[in-house]
């Protein structure tokens, strides 16, 4: 091997990398919150009688699922710019990941909605609950239980997807910080190895956390 590792300077960058990981988590959480809300709406759209709403659902879901996430993020930043819709790197990445997550989650939610028996809704309605109340108190809690696993998976994907921000100029997330350091020093392996460890830790943190949460929430 014709290469001597320079770990010392790379390890000195550890605090910056950690901050990058915090930003990464922030972007993922933000995109997931927005993504889940939109996904619920899309799932309801798919059951609606309105052709327009059903159309919106299917266009969104198909576009999100059939084009690469990298393409989506790039399109939000550079493509929408030509339409005069200029978003900075951070919001572009959030919009891109939200778009992607909403598309995938909408399908999970749609399946989840189907699994909740229609009779429950009718029973609640006949007890005098309003339709929104039924949705919030009867349907949603069960829905979340059904889609909990897909949401956890999607959260991990959201974290991995934040790494795409680097193509639209983001410099303060984990991938951005790593790339900045590696292009200045050209010590690609050292910095990316550290980043890989941090991404792994983030993903583990989410799956383990979700496991604990699931045991707390769903034990009955």
């Amino acid at each position: 091997m014709n290469y001597t590792f320079h770990w010392a300077p790379a390890l000195k960058a550890w605090p910056q990398l950690l901050w990058g990981a915090v930003v990464t988590l922030e972007i993922a959480v933000l995109s997931m919150i927005l993504g889940v809300m939109i996904a619920i709406a899309l799932a309801l759209f798919s059951k609606s009688n309105s052709k327009l709403l059903r159309g919106i659902n299917s266009v969104w879901v198909e576009l999100a699922r059939n084009t690469p996430a990298l393409f989506q993020v790039y399109m939000v930043y550079f493509g929408l710019g030509s339409l005069g819709l200029r978003l900075d790197s951070y919001p572009s990445l959030v919009v891109g990941i939200t778009f992607n997550c909403a598309g995938y989650l909408a399908e999970a939610f749609r399946g989840g909605l189907r699994a909740i028996p229609e009779t429950q809704v009718r029973a609640a309605r006949s007890l005098g609950m309003s339709a929104p109340k039924v949705f919030i108190f009867i349907v949603l809690p069960q829905l979340f239980r059904i889609v909990f696993y897909p949401i956890t998976n999607q959260m991990v994907w959201a974290i991995l997807m934040t790494s795409l921000g680097v193509v639209v100029g983001l410099t303060n997330d984990l991938m951005g910080v790593t790339q900045q350091m590696s292009v200045v020093t050209f010590r690609t392996f050292e910095y990316f190895a550290l980043a890989a460890i941090l991404y792994y830790a983030l993903a583990k943190f989410v799956t383990l956390g979700a496991g604990v949460l699931a045991r707390r929430l769903f034990q009955y």
Binding site: M1, N2, L160, M161, S163, T178, F189, A193, A195, Y200
Partner: peptide
């Protein structure tokens, strides 16, 4: 591990391993 690390980083790492180990 391979499911928990961004693919972008896996590409970069394996690519540099390829060069480091010639």
């Amino acid at each position: 591990v391979f499911r928990s690390i961004p693919l972008l980083i896996q590409f970069v790492l394996i690519n540099s391993v390829n060069s480091l180990l010639r």
